[in-house]
Simulated assay, not measured.
Amino acid sequence: MKQMPFVEAKPVADKKLALFAPVPAPWRSSAHPLYLNDFAACRNVESGAVFIIASGLSAKSFPLEKFAHVPMITMNGSISMFMNTDIKPSFYACTDRSFSKQQPDLFNYAMAVSQRVALWEDHAQSSHARPTGQLYPLSKAPKPSWIDVALGRSKELVTDHPLIAFRKRSIGFSKDMSQGFFDARTVAYLAIQLAFHVGFSKVFLVGVDLDEKSGRFYETKDSINSPCGLDQHYYTRILPSFELMSKKVIGDDFMVYNLSDISKIPASVIPRISVAQVEAMLHQ
């Protein structure tokens, strides 16, 4: 992707915030400037297939290196699957501000090897690790008003019925991350929105089990584990978000497939396929 020139710098918490600039700083030092990129700079820069590597137990059986030639998006501690490989994630996403303290080695590794990183700006500012790739600050998408919907505004923010007022935040899907993303209470859903934004058209989900009882494959009983709210939010936010995506976003130009045979997402919402079927699709 063509590098964007430096256009602005302003003091932020004794550092300089440079917009649209590449990151020159060593990844382990917070003494260096933190540079933020606008999401518009990476819109539609990719194409074709992408794997999204999540943290469900089923991810452990996925032959990651077999598909090293295919771009990958990963998140949180799922980056551990990339250790001892030459694979550099196309995007790394983390919405858990405490993750860098709970799993510092994994977070630092993600900052060191990922081509692009999506974090909350305050998390990026407070972290001692600086990404060697491009950093994109996350923001939540606003809920479009019924007037916006009626007049055809905010077409890139696909939402549920605009007149449903009982939700604090609407269920939705962002096709343009510069307008923010919709939080479904699972970072895997953010990763799918990232995939759409950068231009991928065929998404393969790995480890999107959404089974709270099974836990995350990289956590152990001796590690500091992040709280999990999958069961709490499954029927109120997670499943409705995937259902909306299935009905209003997925189509001939954007397909999503689930490689987890133990996923809680119904096959009627996201079709399931095997690794062998993925291989066949990639060779078409």
Rank of each mutant, 00 (worst) to 15 (best):
S223L: 06
I262G: 08
H123F: 08
D211F: 00
D176V: 03
H233Y: 15
R272D: 02
Y218C: 02
M4D: 03
T220Q: 03
D105P: 00
E8V: 13
G207R: 09
P33K: 07
A59E: 06
E279W: 12
L135S: 09
S154D: 13
L135M: 13
P63K: 02
S78T: 11
L259S: 03
K264Q: 12
F39L: 12
L106Y: 05
D231S: 06
F242C: 01
R153K: 12
R169L: 12
L34Y: 09
F20N: 15
Y257T: 01
K264W: 11
T85K: 08
H283M: 11
V45M: 10
E156T: 12
D261R: 11
A124W: 09
R185I: 00
E46N: 07
D14E: 08
K221Q: 13
S47D: 13
P5R: 10
L244R: 07
S223F: 10
N108R: 15
F51V: 06
D211A: 05
S226K: 01
F242Y: 15
S29T: 05
Q284Y: 04
P227V: 02
D253E: 12
T186C: 11
Y235Q: 15
K213E: 14
P22K: 11
Q134E: 13
L106I: 10
S47F: 01
I164G: 00
K247E: 14
L19I: 15
Y109I: 06
I270E: 01
K202P: 00
V7S: 05
S226M: 03
K16L: 14
Q179G: 00
G48Y: 02
K2D: 02
G172A: 09
D209S: 11
L106G: 03
M255N: 10
I171Q: 01
D105N: 11
E219A: 07
L119F: 14
A195H: 09
I73Y: 01
E121K: 04
V113C: 05
I73N: 01
S226L: 09
F182S: 04
Y218N: 02
V249E: 08
G251H: 10
P266C: 06
I273N: 03
E65T: 13
P11W: 10
L19V: 14
T132A: 14
M111D: 04
F166E: 13
K221M: 12
S98I: 11
G48P: 00
K10I: 12
Q125R: 14
P131N: 07
K88G: 04
M81Q: 15
N108E: 15
H128A: 03
D160V: 00
E219V: 06
L17K: 12
A41V: 06
L210T: 04
S30T: 09
R169D: 15
A31N: 09
H128R: 14
L151C: 11
D231R: 10
M111Y: 08
A18Y: 15
V117D: 05
Y35H: 14
D261G: 08
A93N: 04
S260K: 08
D211I: 05
V12Q: 10
L119H: 05
P89D: 05
H197R: 04
S178N: 12
S260W: 10
F181Q: 04
K16C: 06
V206R: 01
V206A: 01
S30W: 11
K248T: 08
W120F: 14
L230R: 00
V23I: 12
F217V: 09
V117E: 02
G199F: 07
V198Q: 03
A129N: 10
F39E: 06
